[in-house]
Amino acid sequence: MDRLPKLGLPVIIGVILLIILIVKSTITIAPGKAGVLYRTFGGGVVTDKPPMSEGFHWVLPWNKVYVYNVRQQELSEKMQVLSSNGLQIGLDATAWHQPVREKLGLLHQEKGERYITDVILPAIRSAARSVVGRYTPEQLYSTKRDAIQEEIFDETKKILDKQYVQLNEVLVRDITLPPTIKTAIETKLRQEQETLEYEFRLEKAEKEAERQRIEAEGKAAANRILSASLTDKILQEKGIQATVELSKSQNSKVIVIGAGNDGMPIILGNQ
Rank of each mutant, 00 (worst) to 15 (best):
Q149W: 08
R134I: 04
S53W: 02
P31R: 11
A127W: 02
I148D: 03
R125K: 15
V70T: 15
V11Q: 03
Q80Y: 09
Q241Y: 08
E186W: 00
I148N: 00
A220Q: 11
A222W: 00
Q271D: 15
G269A: 14
G90I: 06
D154K: 14
E151K: 09
H108N: 14
K219G: 03
E74M: 13
G218R: 14
E203F: 09
P61L: 08
G35C: 04
G32M: 09
T187Q: 02
L230Q: 03
I240Y: 06
P51D: 01
K219F: 14
S249V: 05
A259W: 07
A184G: 02
K33W: 07
T94A: 13
E110T: 12
K238V: 06
V256H: 12
P31I: 02
R114C: 11
I234A: 10
P10R: 07
Q73M: 14
A95G: 07
H108I: 01
Q271K: 14
T136Q: 05
Y38V: 15
H108W: 05
P137Y: 04
L196Y: 02
V244H: 06
G44C: 08
A222H: 07
K33G: 04
F41M: 14
K6H: 09
K188D: 05
N85V: 15
W96M: 13
Q166H: 10
G55Y: 01
R224Y: 00
S227T: 07
E217C: 07
Y66F: 15
T143D: 11
T136V: 01
D262R: 10
Y115G: 03
K33N: 08
V70S: 03
M1G: 13
T136L: 03
E186T: 10
M52A: 03
T183F: 01
T40Y: 08
G105C: 02
N85C: 03
L107Y: 03
R129P: 01
E245M: 11
G105R: 02
I116Q: 09
R190M: 00
E237R: 06
R190D: 05
R224S: 11
K103M: 09
Y198V: 03
L107W: 01
T243F: 05
W58M: 14
D2P: 00
P265D: 08
L121G: 07
H57S: 06
I185A: 02
K157Y: 09
L121I: 10
L18G: 10
S229A: 14
D154Q: 14
Q73E: 12
P99D: 05
A30E: 10
K248Q: 07
A228L: 11
K64Q: 15
A220C: 02
G42M: 11
I27L: 08
T187A: 05
E110K: 09
V67C: 05
L171Y: 08
G14A: 13
A147N: 12
N223W: 10
D262E: 12
E217V: 09
K78T: 13
E150H: 13
L60V: 09
V172D: 01
N63D: 15
L106M: 09
L140G: 02
Q191G: 02
Y38T: 14
I27E: 05
E194R: 12
K6V: 15
Y38D: 07
Q163S: 13
P50M: 06
L235I: 11
A123T: 08
F56V: 05
N251I: 11
